[in-house]
């Protein structure tokens, strides 16, 4: 097994483990947020392995740097004494069980179908020079995808306005 593969499995294990920890067995909500950070960072590592350096950087910047901080900020704001989690995943009723089962089935289906599909389009071994680096991706973003970037701007504006009006302390 190459070093690359080793790193992949290590990151994969970390990601899955901390994800399960987040939804499963941590006791305090801050610990859950920390588990989320670990997952995010592991995924960033995997992105690097897959020649997506820019994504990896942004993943860490936005997720670890902004989103999880936002979570922590709200947790702090709420001042939860008991960790706020209560008993771990209790009493799942039938509907939820069916939902979970269905999703797992879909997931399994996906995994099962993956092998067949990719025989037609094998992994490209020789990537173009500088694939996934910030320069190439940046050029793509502001030429082919400029419209999408504009739209993301609008989405962010909408979320700012929405969040402000909802969270503002005093309104008349």
């Amino acid at each position: 097994m190459s070093f690359e593969m080793f790193l992949f499995y290590a990151f994969a294990f970390l990601a899955v483990f901390s994800a399960v920890a987040m939804i499963g067995f941590v006791r305090h909500i801050v610990a859950a947020a920390m588990s989320l950070v670990v997952t995010m960072v592991s995924l960033a590592g995997i992105y690097v392995l897959m020649h997506a350096e820019l994504i990896a950087a942004i993943q860490i910047l936005v997720y670890a740097g902004a989103i999880v901080v936002l979570f922590l900020f709200v947790i702090m704001l709420l001042d939860l004494r008991d960790g706020g989690l209560g008993p771990a995943a209790r009493g799942q009723n039938l509907v939820k069980a069916v939902g979970v089962g269905g999703t797992v089935t879909i997931g399994t289906l996906v995994v099962a179908s993956v092998s067949g599909v990719f025989s037609v389009n094998p992994l490209v071994e020789s990537l173009p020079e500088g694939f996934g680096e910030h320069r190439a991706l940046g050029i793509a973003l502001f030429t082919d995808y400029a419209l999408a970037v504009e739209l993301v701007g609008l989405v962010l504006l909408a979320s700012i306005v929405g969040a402000v009006i909802l969270a503002k302390r005093k309104i008349d």
Binding site: V62, L137, L156, G162
Partner: peptide, 16 residues
């Protein structure tokens, strides 16, 4: 990339 940005927006509204 777009999804990451949107995710941030979503969290902001959700927490609001």
């Amino acid at each position: 990339l777009m999804v990451i940005a949107v995710a941030a927006a979503e969290v902001a509204v959700g927490l609001g």
